[in-house]
């Protein structure tokens, strides 16, 4: 039996790592097919694998959706219901910065490799006339490390995924101050299926959308931190891609 490759956007929260393995087991039983969960350390290596046609199923970062759909022929399946990607710009609570416009060219910006959150964060810095050419980027491996850069005052501002900011301990959060929080509401991760296993699309979609109806399914959802799956049709995905396209300029 052929083994298909399933992968997850490298920005998943560590708490849900086991959840994705549990999901992969559910996937194999549901489709009666072999899937190998291949996790990548970074977006660069995951994109290289996608471009080399080594990926069949992906829980994708929205930043990669244009390439997956328009270049590699992937189709959307579903998303976590009511979960969207939003970003926060935060500073040290004692810093003199009270609004984004107080940040000046030359500021040190702590950020992660997470591409959609980084992009949304950079958009929120535009009102201060800041872009990648006028800030000093400090790339961190996690949002906790972004917070540490702010607390140690080795960075002036940091870009966070909202959930990651809210997951910081209260001790850390008390030392930070939010300057701006995005309310974009239409940018989200999606489970997407590749052209080589398109025959599974309907069966998988049916199973995803009814997952919450069985005890076993609810257990998988809980392990993923997902309330339930919500259908993403082709046009909704195209709309999000068009929107991402406008933001990449």
């Amino acid at each position: 039996m052929t083994t298909h490759v399933f992968t997850v956007s490298p920005d998943f929260t560590p708490d849900h790592l086991s959840g994705w393995f549990i999901f992969n087991t559910w996937l194999q039983k549901t489709l009666d097919a072999h899937f190998h969960l291949q996790l990548y350390d970074d977006f660069h290596s995951q994109r290289a694998a996608t471009l080399a046609d080594k990926i069949d199923l992906i829980y994708a970062n929205p930043f990669d959706a244009p390439m997956l759909v328009r270049e590699k022929g992937f189709k959307p399946l579903a998303r976590f219901a009511s979960v969207t990607d939003e970003a926060i710009i935060a500073v040290n609570a004692e810093s003199p910065y009270l609004k984004v416009e107080d940040l000046k060219p030359g500021v040190k910006l702590a950020t992660t490799e997470d591409p959609d959150v980084h992009m949304m964060g950079m958009i929120m810095l535009e009102p201060a006339d800041l872009d990648t050419s006028t800030v000093e980027i400090i790339e961190c491996d996690s949002y906790v490390l972004v917070a540490k850069q702010l607390i140690k005052q080795t960075a002036d501002a940091g870009i966070f995924l909202v959930e990651a900011f809210e997951d910081l301990s209260s001790v850390i959060r008390r030392q930070l101050r939010i300057l701006v929080r995005s309310q974009i509401q239409v940018v989200h991760h999606s489970l997407m299926i590749g052209p080589h296993i398109m025959e599974y699309r309907e069966k998988l979609l049916d199973a995803l959308l009814t997952m919450q109806d069985s005890e076993k399914g609810r257990g998988v959802l809980e392990a993923l931190g997902c309330p339930k799956w919500e259908y993403v049709d082709d046009e909704e995905m195209e709309f999000m891609i068009d929107l991402m396209d406008t933001l990449m300029l």
Partner: peptide
């Protein structure tokens, strides 16, 4: 600060999307 793109489906322009964000005062 407005960005406008064509919505292209199956090679045809079916509409336009316009997204606005906060501009700098400068």
């Amino acid at each position: 600060k407005a960005t406008v793109i064509s919505n292209i489906r199956n090679g045809k322009v079916v509409g336009y999307t316009s997204v606005r964000r906060k501009p700098s005062r400068q």
